[in-house]
Design a protein around this nucleic acid. Structure first.
Lengths: 117, 117
DNA sequence: TGTAGTATATCGTAATACAACCTATATAAA
DNA sequence: TTTATATAGGTTGTATTACGATATACTACA
């Protein structure tokens, strides 16, 4: 993982919801997709994604159904609900505000000096 | 706190280092400054900042000295070291890459569809 | 007297991501 | 043949983190 575990916190749920927003997927597929989209920098493990999928389903953000495969393990597909879509919208708004603020606090050194008593 | 506790994780240390990068400060002063700079949206508590200051000092990112006050509790001032300044630089680079990636994953829905097999 | 502000500090708690581990099957390499 | 990797699901224990609660101690004000 190229990014600190701590920076990642709070973003994983929305990442997974956003992935499912463009179509139903199974857990393992989401892992591969996020890895691919991030140019191998974000490798969510199984121990990360499955508990989150279960939690999101308990919270009615997702619904699931099984699909049998020939010569391969069966897959559990997840489908995003309207509640899940609303959650994405909220999370995007929060992220926009938060990242703007961190940009200010991390880079705008001048304001630190100017605002001092 | 307007932002989720989890989004905040991983940014607090750098926030504090950046604050000290523009001049020595004591713990309580850092809390007030971050609160002010964030328009009251970031209210770091005492239980947050003091353990971090101690940890940063143990890690040689900061050095501290006491100043006695008249009619007020004495203040423990923190000074950033060269190691601390290097840490800021690293953290800024990491934040730039990370926030760019999250922007992509949260908002660029099109890429999710296009990249699907 | 009560409350708020200044200033430092510690402790317990909830939430999180993850490594490690487990079950299966299939395929490819050593 | 054995080993490793990939697919696909899952659980459990652990470290890290931010924070509320609490403690101490002094000042200022209603």
């Amino acid at each position: 993982m190229n990014y600190s575990k701590e920076l990642l916190k709070g973003t994983t749920n929305t990442m997974i919801l956003t992935s499912l927003n463009s179509g139903d997927k199974y857990g393992y597929q989401i892992i591969k997709q996020i890895k691919q989209l991030s140019d191998n920098s974000l490798k969510l493990g199984e121990g990360t994604i499955y508990p989150i999928l279960h939690k999101l389903e308990r919270g009615r953000m997702l619904e699931s159904y099984w699909i049998e495969q020939e010569n391969l393990p069966k897959r559990k597909y997840y489908h995003i609900t309207e509640k899940g879509k609303r959650k994405i919208k909220e999370a995007r708004e929060e992220w926009k505000k938060f990242s703007t603020l961190i940009d200010k606090l991390f880079f705008n050194t001048k304001s630190f000096i100017l605002n001092e008593k």
